[in-house]
Design a protein around this nucleic acid. Structure first.
Lengths: 214, 214, 214, 214
DNA sequence: CGATAATCGAGACGGTACGTCAGGTCTTGGC
DNA sequence: GCCAAGACCTGACGTACCGTCTCGATTATCG
């Protein structure tokens, strides 16, 4: 579901579309989103400016499409691993998320989008719908599965629970209050899980809390 | 510690400085940061552009200074309330934080800054140092006080604990994954506190958990 | 042969070109070349600055084009009158030249150009090629015709002879060593012609010298 | 008679004055008058801008003063050589004049002044009064001396006669209609003198015209 | 199959803002 | 008390891009 205007897509030049997205991605990566210009993209893509304006409403929308490809399969039918060990599974996923944010290719693009959505509501909706939402939904599903397995409290607000995992990560990354690195996942997951476990004193699901180590 | 270039500050015109910051704030509020221009500020402030360029390196830096005044007393010797009830105190503070983010005056400015720091590292450092840092430090101090009162686990990573509170709030606000409203604080605080309490099952310090849950 | 940069002239907007030249001429005439600005021209012409910079390299080049129209027909296939009376013909032409220099419309423009060519070699070449050169060439042709009629010495350096006529006029006009007025032509022409006549003492071609002086 | 404003010159700093004129001359010579700025002069002279504005009304006036020194002795009590041979004397002087115009040091300054006087009437008057006038007056005196010796016609308009010599030279130099070089003097002087000699058929003063060769 | 209409590249156009330069005036602090 | 230093407001510079708008020259269905 790329950000496209409506007109008859049949006539659209696939060559041009690809050239534009490729140029947008390359230019963003090697000079940063701030220096990215429509004219620059057009020139690099060997395309008229009008061709860009015909199909995309804004610079942000192009970048969105340009980088969507990188994560798009993930976005489609995303599912978290389910080994039965909720802590391990979350750690795996969050480490991956962090590594993705640290990868310069994604870093540039995601920061650009994070920046743009402060202004562009439509883009924000698209970003949530295509990337952030699916990821969070998948996480919720995994939490729900753990919940059904009695590992998490029954009364959990899954949305909020999910944000407990992603919030601190994006907080560091977006606001730069502290350096982000994958070990954050290792500290974060067990800590948050303490809040999510069933309230019963016996708390059998968590092996560690019971006997101290594991 | 505003963002300034080199020239002799002794000769600086206080009149011009104030006019610029006022104009920048007013313009940001009624047309948004995206439409804010240096020329517009200069015109509105009755000031030459050069006077702006002489003292500020970027549009973001001006807005930073312009809005710093709004929160700057808070930033200086910020301290969280300490009624002995950590949950109530945190709820109070986080509600205030959320309300501030929802206040259009701050919303415009903070989004602008959040957007700019994705690109401008220097500005990011200043933002953390002048606003975000002090707020988080104060929060850490309050958590530490609760820790000393035996209400929180002794082994806590206070930095991470703090991020557990602020992360989800900023996550919603910046990434727009869900609407932000003050009731988030009410759900968030008790949930996170479950993760932070001492590991002893009886957890006597928290009156609510003792007789409320079990 | 106006002064143009490289871009594809086929796409050039005739409307814009005309508006620019008209604005340049009008502004020069009513505020003087010194106060003329590119921005002023663009504004008066209802044109983007870039459109000016796209087609002209300098303010001088615009004024050159703007005023070329005034004299351009003359420049094309200029020919001096040839009544057979070289003295009368030159007097006619030089009076006209002087009157043109005194006409405020031309005065402003020509002084501007005279000023600019001290710095701008390219403009100087264009000025000579389009205006001064043709005028002098036509004068040379008329002198040559008189030469063939035996009214002037056979061995004349026509270039130098021509400069004998124009030099003193421009000297007064440019350096302001003395006020310029059309009667200068009446004194100048017969005096210079004395230098140009055939060396034979009897000098029959000049009716006046024959029966007037002696 | 340099171009100064009126205020009490007693307080004037001679050091500053000299530094300013020297800086103006140096800067003009090595970057051209067009790039010369008041700020540049002030900086190079180690002087406040106000000190310049206090004593000179315009950039042209500074350059005028700065270069006046070069020719000022000449301007004061200028006298042409008088060997009795008017042709030789004029040739000598005009060659010198041409060489001076070709000397880069003077070329830069004189072109600057020639350019400025198109706009600045006051400067024009000063230039004529201090440099061009004296030179022409001296030339007139020499012509008058030749006249008294019977070498030139009695009825001559000396002003016009003088312009016959200088006009062509400055015409080439200012309007760049032809390259200027010292041999111009050799061709110019005898030709113009033909126009100035007494009208008597015997014309004894000119040896050459009489016997054909010399 | 050839017409015919939308799309394509190219880039000129009217604009807005940029960041810089210099002008001429005004203020300050040190000598 | 003068003067270097330089901040100030002003105005113009020349450049970069914006988003819109022609231009032919391909396409690529559809009559």
């Amino acid at each position: 579901m790329p950000l496209r205007k409506l007109p008859d897509e049949a006539r659209r030049s696939e060559r041009a579309r690809r050239a534009i997205l490729t140029a947008a991605r390359d230019l963003t990566l090697d000079q940063g989103y701030a220096r990215l210009t429509i004219e620059g993209i057009a020139a690099a893509a060997g395309v008229g400016k009008q061709t860009i304006y015909r199909w995309w409403p804004s610079k942000g929308a192009i970048v969105f499409d340009a980088f969507l490809a990188l994560s798009q399969d993930a976005a489609g039918n995303l599912e978290l691993p389910d080994t039965g060990d909720i802590e391990a599974d979350l750690r795996t996923v969050l480490r991956e998320t962090i590594l993705e944010l640290l990868d310069p290719r994604h870093d540039a693009a995601f920061r650009a989008l994070a920046s743009e959505i402060q202004t562009d509501r439509k883009l924000a909706d698209n970003l949530v719908q295509a990337l952030l939402g699916p990821q969070m939904e998948a996480t919720k599903r995994r939490l729900q599965s753990a919940q059904r397995a009695g590992q998490l409290a029954r009364s959990l607000d899954l949305q909020l629970a999910t944000e407990l995992f992603y919030g601190p990560i994006f907080h560091r990354w977006l606001l730069r209050t502290a350096p982000l690195d994958p070990t954050l996942a290792d500290a974060l997951v067990p800590l948050v899980l303490r809040a999510l476990r069933p309230k019963s004193a016996k708390s059998p699901p968590d092996p560690r809390e019971r006997d101290g180590t594991r």
